[in-house]
Protein backbone atom coordinates (compact mmCIF):
# COMPACT_ATOMS: atom_id res chain seq x y z
CA UNK A 1 0.00 0.00 0.00
CA UNK A 2 1.34 3.41 -0.94
CA UNK A 3 1.78 5.60 2.05
CA UNK A 4 1.82 8.93 0.34
CA UNK A 5 0.11 11.45 2.57
CA UNK A 6 -1.86 13.07 -0.19
CA UNK A 7 -3.13 10.03 -2.05
CA UNK A 8 -6.85 10.19 -1.55
CA UNK A 9 -8.77 7.18 -2.87
CA UNK A 10 -9.93 5.85 0.46
CA UNK A 11 -9.80 7.48 3.81
CA UNK A 12 -7.75 4.63 5.24
CA UNK A 13 -5.20 4.79 2.52
CA UNK A 14 -5.10 8.54 2.42
CA UNK A 15 -4.58 8.88 6.13
CA UNK A 16 -2.21 5.95 6.07
CA UNK A 17 -3.22 4.75 9.50
CA UNK A 18 -5.68 2.39 10.97
CA UNK A 19 -7.34 4.97 13.13
CA UNK A 20 -9.50 6.86 10.71
CA UNK A 21 -12.22 6.35 13.27
CA UNK A 22 -10.15 8.15 15.89
CA UNK A 23 -9.55 11.07 13.56
CA UNK A 24 -13.24 11.19 12.78
CA UNK A 25 -14.12 11.11 16.45
CA UNK A 26 -11.80 14.03 17.09
CA UNK A 27 -13.18 15.96 14.13
CA UNK A 28 -16.74 15.30 15.30
CA UNK A 29 -15.76 16.71 18.66
CA UNK A 30 -14.81 19.97 17.00
CA UNK A 31 -11.11 19.31 16.54
CA UNK A 32 -10.23 21.44 13.54
CA UNK A 33 -6.85 19.80 13.22
CA UNK A 34 -8.47 16.42 12.69
CA UNK A 35 -10.92 17.89 10.21
CA UNK A 36 -8.03 19.50 8.31
CA UNK A 37 -6.51 16.04 7.91
CA UNK A 38 -9.80 14.74 6.53
CA UNK A 39 -9.96 17.64 4.07
CA UNK A 40 -6.44 16.92 3.02
CA UNK A 41 -7.11 13.24 2.51
CA UNK A 42 -10.30 13.61 0.51
CA UNK A 43 -10.03 16.91 -1.37
CA UNK A 44 -8.66 15.53 -4.61
CA UNK A 45 -11.20 12.75 -4.82
CA UNK A 46 -13.94 15.26 -4.07
CA UNK A 47 -12.66 17.53 -6.83
CA UNK A 48 -12.63 14.77 -9.42
CA UNK A 49 -16.19 13.87 -8.56
CA UNK A 50 -17.34 17.50 -8.48
CA UNK A 51 -15.74 18.17 -11.83
CA UNK A 52 -17.44 15.22 -13.44
CA UNK A 53 -20.78 16.29 -12.02
CA UNK A 54 -20.55 19.98 -12.88
CA UNK A 55 -18.34 19.83 -15.97
CA UNK A 56 -16.20 22.85 -15.17
CA UNK A 57 -13.40 23.74 -12.79
CA UNK A 58 -14.89 26.85 -11.26
CA UNK A 59 -18.09 25.16 -10.18
CA UNK A 60 -16.19 22.07 -9.10
CA UNK A 61 -13.95 24.15 -6.81
CA UNK A 62 -16.99 25.80 -5.26
CA UNK A 63 -18.69 22.45 -4.80
CA UNK A 64 -15.64 20.98 -3.07
CA UNK A 65 -15.42 23.86 -0.62
CA UNK A 66 -19.12 23.92 0.06
CA UNK A 67 -19.10 20.14 0.56
CA UNK A 68 -16.43 20.26 3.24
CA UNK A 69 -18.15 23.13 5.02
CA UNK A 70 -21.40 21.19 4.94
CA UNK A 71 -19.62 18.04 6.12
CA UNK A 72 -18.11 19.95 9.03
CA UNK A 73 -21.50 21.28 10.05
CA UNK A 74 -23.03 17.83 9.86
CA UNK A 75 -20.19 15.83 11.39
CA UNK A 76 -22.10 15.28 14.60
CA UNK A 77 -24.65 13.36 12.53
CA UNK A 78 -22.04 11.13 10.96
CA UNK A 79 -22.27 7.61 12.30
CA UNK A 80 -18.94 6.18 13.31
CA UNK A 81 -19.63 2.82 11.72
CA UNK A 82 -20.21 4.43 8.33
CA UNK A 83 -17.57 5.08 5.73
CA UNK A 84 -16.51 8.72 5.65
CA UNK A 85 -15.66 8.60 1.94
CA UNK A 86 -19.14 7.31 1.11
CA UNK A 87 -20.75 9.92 3.33
CA UNK A 88 -18.70 12.70 1.78
CA UNK A 89 -19.47 11.38 -1.70
CA UNK A 90 -23.15 11.89 -1.03
CA UNK A 91 -22.57 15.41 0.26
CA UNK A 92 -20.57 16.31 -2.85
CA UNK A 93 -23.36 14.97 -5.06
CA UNK A 94 -25.93 17.03 -3.16
CA UNK A 95 -23.82 20.16 -3.37
CA UNK A 96 -23.31 19.57 -7.09
CA UNK A 97 -27.07 19.16 -7.53
CA UNK A 98 -27.57 22.49 -5.78
CA UNK A 99 -24.95 24.09 -7.97
CA UNK A 100 -26.55 22.70 -11.13
CA UNK A 101 -30.00 23.83 -10.00
CA UNK A 102 -28.62 27.30 -9.39
CA UNK A 103 -27.09 27.28 -12.84
CA UNK A 104 -30.41 26.17 -14.33
CA UNK A 105 -32.29 28.95 -12.53
CA UNK A 106 -29.83 31.55 -13.76
CA UNK A 107 -30.15 30.28 -17.30
CA UNK A 108 -33.93 30.38 -17.17
CA UNK A 109 -33.88 33.86 -15.69
CA UNK A 110 -31.54 35.10 -18.37
CA UNK A 111 -33.28 33.03 -21.04
CA UNK A 112 -29.82 31.93 -22.03
CA UNK A 113 -30.12 28.51 -23.59
CA UNK A 114 -26.62 27.35 -22.79
CA UNK A 115 -24.63 29.14 -20.13
CA UNK A 116 -20.86 28.80 -20.31
CA UNK A 117 -21.13 26.16 -22.94
CA UNK A 118 -19.91 26.12 -26.52
CA UNK A 119 -22.19 27.15 -29.34
CA UNK A 120 -23.05 23.91 -31.08
CA UNK A 121 -25.07 25.50 -33.85
CA UNK A 122 -21.98 27.22 -35.14
CA UNK A 123 -20.33 23.90 -35.73
CA UNK A 124 -23.09 21.78 -37.20
CA UNK A 125 -20.88 20.89 -40.13
CA UNK A 126 -17.43 20.57 -38.64
CA UNK A 127 -14.59 20.53 -41.02
CA UNK A 128 -12.39 17.50 -40.39
CA UNK A 129 -9.45 19.60 -41.44
CA UNK A 130 -10.12 22.18 -38.75
CA UNK A 131 -11.49 20.17 -35.91
CA UNK A 132 -10.40 16.92 -34.45
CA UNK A 133 -13.37 14.61 -34.07
CA UNK A 134 -12.75 14.19 -30.36
CA UNK A 135 -12.92 17.94 -29.82
CA UNK A 136 -16.20 18.08 -31.65
CA UNK A 137 -17.57 15.19 -29.63
CA UNK A 138 -16.54 16.96 -26.47
CA UNK A 139 -18.23 20.18 -27.59
CA UNK A 140 -21.41 18.40 -28.41
CA UNK A 141 -21.40 16.36 -25.23
CA UNK A 142 -20.82 19.53 -23.19
CA UNK A 143 -23.66 21.26 -24.96
CA UNK A 144 -26.05 18.37 -24.51
CA UNK A 145 -25.04 17.94 -20.88
CA UNK A 146 -25.90 21.58 -20.31
CA UNK A 147 -29.41 20.80 -21.52
CA UNK A 148 -29.92 17.97 -19.04
CA UNK A 149 -31.83 18.48 -15.84
CA UNK A 150 -29.62 18.40 -12.73
CA UNK A 151 -30.90 14.94 -11.88
CA UNK A 152 -30.26 13.59 -15.38
CA UNK A 153 -26.81 15.07 -15.45
CA UNK A 154 -25.80 13.75 -12.05
CA UNK A 155 -27.30 10.32 -12.68
CA UNK A 156 -25.47 10.07 -16.01
CA UNK A 157 -22.16 11.26 -14.57
CA UNK A 158 -22.37 8.83 -11.67
CA UNK A 159 -23.20 5.94 -13.99
CA UNK A 160 -20.98 6.77 -16.93
CA UNK A 161 -17.93 8.46 -15.43
CA UNK A 162 -17.95 7.14 -11.89
CA UNK A 163 -19.15 3.61 -12.61
CA UNK A 164 -21.81 3.65 -9.91
CA UNK A 165 -24.64 1.16 -10.21
CA UNK A 166 -28.18 2.35 -10.85
CA UNK A 167 -29.12 1.15 -7.36
CA UNK A 168 -26.37 3.22 -5.78
CA UNK A 169 -27.35 6.24 -7.82
CA UNK A 170 -30.93 5.91 -6.63
CA UNK A 171 -29.79 5.74 -3.02
CA UNK A 172 -27.42 8.67 -3.42
CA UNK A 173 -30.07 10.85 -5.03
CA UNK A 174 -32.76 9.64 -2.66
CA UNK A 175 -35.00 8.44 -5.48
CA UNK A 176 -36.39 5.09 -6.58
CA UNK A 177 -34.12 2.88 -8.66
CA UNK A 178 -36.51 3.19 -11.59
CA UNK A 179 -36.31 6.99 -11.41
CA UNK A 180 -32.52 6.84 -11.42
CA UNK A 181 -32.60 4.43 -14.34
CA UNK A 182 -34.88 6.64 -16.40
CA UNK A 183 -32.77 9.69 -15.60
CA UNK A 184 -29.79 7.86 -17.14
CA UNK A 185 -31.92 6.76 -20.13
CA UNK A 186 -33.08 10.32 -20.82
CA UNK A 187 -29.55 11.67 -20.48
CA UNK A 188 -28.13 9.16 -22.95
CA UNK A 189 -30.92 9.83 -25.44
CA UNK A 190 -30.15 13.56 -25.39
CA UNK A 191 -26.43 12.99 -25.76
CA UNK A 192 -27.07 10.53 -28.55
CA UNK A 193 -29.18 13.05 -30.43
CA UNK A 194 -26.38 15.59 -30.10
CA UNK A 195 -23.79 13.13 -31.39
CA UNK A 196 -25.91 11.56 -34.14
CA UNK A 197 -24.86 14.04 -36.87
CA UNK A 198 -21.24 13.07 -36.32
CA UNK A 199 -22.05 9.44 -36.95
CA UNK A 200 -23.43 10.28 -40.38
CA UNK A 201 -20.47 12.54 -41.20
CA UNK A 202 -18.25 10.73 -43.69
Amino acid sequence: MALTVFSPPSSKQAMGLGDVAAVLAKASGGDGEAFALLVNSHARTAFRLAYRLTGNERDAEDVVQESFIRAYRQLSRFEARSNFATWLHRIVVNCAMDSLRGRQVRRERLADPVEDMPDVAASDCPSPERLAMSDEIRRRVDASMAELTPQERVAFALRHYEGRSIDEIGRTLGVQTSAAKHAVFRAVKKIRVALEPLRSTP
Binding site: T4, V5, F6, P8, V39, N40, S41, H42, A43, R44, F47, R48, Y51, R52, G55, E57, A60, S134, I137, V141, A157, H160, Y161, I191, L195
Partner: peptide
Protein backbone atom coordinates in the same frame (compact mmCIF):
# COMPACT_ATOMS: atom_id res chain seq x y z
CA UNK B 1 -16.25 8.34 -27.01
CA UNK B 2 -17.90 10.21 -24.16
CA UNK B 3 -15.06 10.77 -21.74
CA UNK B 4 -14.27 13.44 -19.21
CA UNK B 5 -10.91 13.54 -17.52
CA UNK B 6 -10.81 16.03 -14.65
CA UNK B 7 -7.81 18.34 -14.50
CA UNK B 8 -5.16 17.13 -12.10
CA UNK B 9 -4.82 18.70 -8.70
CA UNK B 10 -1.41 18.44 -7.07
CA UNK B 11 -0.62 17.26 -3.58
CA UNK B 12 -1.10 20.75 -2.17
CA UNK B 13 -4.72 20.87 -3.19
CA UNK B 14 -5.93 19.67 0.21
Amino acid sequence: DVTLEPPERDDRYG
